[in-house]
Amino acid sequence: MSTVRAPAIELRGVERTYRAGLPEAVPALRDIDWSIAPGEFVSVEGPSGCGKTTLLNLLGLLDAPTAGEVRWDGTPVGNRSDRERARLRLEGVGFIFQRFYLLPTLTALENVELPMRALRVPRAERTRRAGELLTEVGLHGKERAFPHQLSGGEEQRVAVARALANRPGLLLADEPTGELDSGNAGAILALLEKVRQDREATLVLVTHNPEVAGRARRHVTMRDGRIALDVRGA
């Protein structure tokens, strides 16, 4: 299994409005025109409620825009059916969440295997590969541990390994260090940078923390559902 090539991502006139249960439509994203080149490391900052997570959800096809288009390599994918977007996520996107979101009834190894099972990777192959990924994130020997037996830092490492399971070209991390102490946070960020470089994957990292954002090569700042600032730098 080779790494899926990172797609060039474009957002054209993207808007996302929430209505359900609310008296009036609430715009979460407004008229976003934006693109990410393959292999970029982008941080997305901004105050709470500015639309960072919504943007990440649209990039990762977890959600569909109310208006506009999300394109991967020039192909509109944002408004495809649930089934098609699920397939694209499974094959091309790795998610890392703030609260890890491991399945508590599965072991660390089984959590990492899960996306590969969905792609029907043979059992021996996926077990071997999940073991290698856990070793790569520093969890050799913890394969049989359940999430509640792991520390927060270890859980997030498992989540990183799971995100890498199908060798995605796009890694999306939503406050990946938000629930970790500084030591673990640094280690996770270093790990993310390493795997991004090793795999030439695109990494979009949403954070409140300027220090975390500072590790990225490109910095996006959002306000009120719009991209207020987009800076490339070292």
């Binding site: 977890l62 649930d82 089934r83 699920a86 397939r87 694209l88 996520r89 499974l90 094959e91 996107v93 998610f95 979101y101 399945l103 508590p104 899960l114 996306p115 969905a118 799971r162």
Partner: peptide, 14 residues
């Protein structure tokens, strides 16, 4: 619901 949401977020088929 969350467990189901995680599975679907990972792209597991319905």
């Amino acid at each position: 619901r969350r467990s189901i949401g995680i599975r679907r977020a990972l792209g597991l088929p319905r």
